Amino acid sequence: MQLGFDAMPRRLIKVTPSRLSTWVDCPRRFRMAYLDRPTPPRGGAWAHSTLGAVVHNALRAFFDLPVAKRTPEAAVALVGQHWSDEGFAGPTQAAEYRTRAAGWVADYVAENDVSMDPVGLERWVSAPVGTIVAEGRVDRIDERDGEVVIIDYKTGRSALTTDDARSSQALALYVLAARRTLRRPCTRVELHHLPTGTVAAWEHTEESLTRHRTRAEEAAEEFHLATDTLNAGGDPDVLFPAQVGRQCSWCDFRRSCQEGQAAGPAMESWAMLAPLG
């Protein structure tokens, strides 16, 4: 008996945490970021994103150093090497936050055990799970007692909580992908908030991972169907409507979205920095 097309296995949908969160936040921004060609022009750099990237890059380079050279002084020097003024109000503000970032990183390496080599730094992980292929780049993966731990650095304005770690779909998908990629057990996720020196952690169960996976599968099916319908000639504004809200003030595609512009004034590129003090 010959199988019909309905019996053929479905193609898995590749997803990253960024794609999923963009779709949920605003389908129009998803279309502009991932489907429109040429891609609409993006806005300029954001100071808080620059700050976060510098800290991430400095810590990656730090753990690439031999253990004997992993000192707070080395961490401060790496912040300087990776620094950028993009998005800041000017050189004075940039210099103030450069000093702050150097202090965060120096305190972090002084107060934590940095003698162990991570299993992965900026490691790409990918695995089929259910109807999707979950993939993405993890800031750091440690090994503890035969299991791997997913670590995500954060530099935002506020300290993070256990609920933040528990509810993070990105971290849950990284767990699922890391298990397959590294072939090791993995349940623990950690958010390392450098400004406060705190760690928010969560131990996932199979049930909690399944809940995250199911939500990811539902969102992936939605944007996959919308994309297929668009390719078949569907109306882009109907399939990918603008989700208007406060986020329109800092959307990278604001200049190409009339609804977003009407939602409120544009935010200054340094407005989401934590206040100095």
Rank of each mutant, 00 (worst) to 15 (best):
D252N: 08
A219K: 05
I132S: 02
D36K: 14
R19D: 03
S269W: 05
A7V: 03
T229K: 08
P118K: 03
H224D: 15
D237Q: 14
C26R: 05
A106S: 13
M272I: 02
C251S: 10
L191R: 07
R11D: 13
P265L: 09
G80N: 12
I13V: 14
A77M: 09
S158Q: 12
R31T: 00
W124N: 08
V67D: 07
V15L: 02
L194G: 03
S21F: 00
R29M: 10
A219N: 12
A110D: 08
V105C: 03
A95P: 04
P236R: 12
F62E: 09
V199Y: 00
G277Q: 11
N57Y: 06
N57V: 00
L35C: 10
I132Q: 02
W270M: 01
F253Y: 15
D139N: 11
V238F: 05
E259Y: 00
S269K: 10
T210V: 01
G90M: 09
R184F: 00
S126F: 02
P27Y: 06
A106R: 04
V24S: 13
R98M: 12
P41H: 09
A33N: 08
A89W: 03
A58D: 08
L121Q: 07
T227R: 13
T162H: 11
P27C: 11
L171K: 08
P236T: 07
S158M: 10
E221K: 09
D142T: 04
V15F: 01
T161S: 15
E122N: 08
A94N: 06
P241E: 11
D164L: 08
W124I: 13
W270S: 13
C26V: 07
P265R: 13
D252A: 15
A216M: 10
A262C: 01
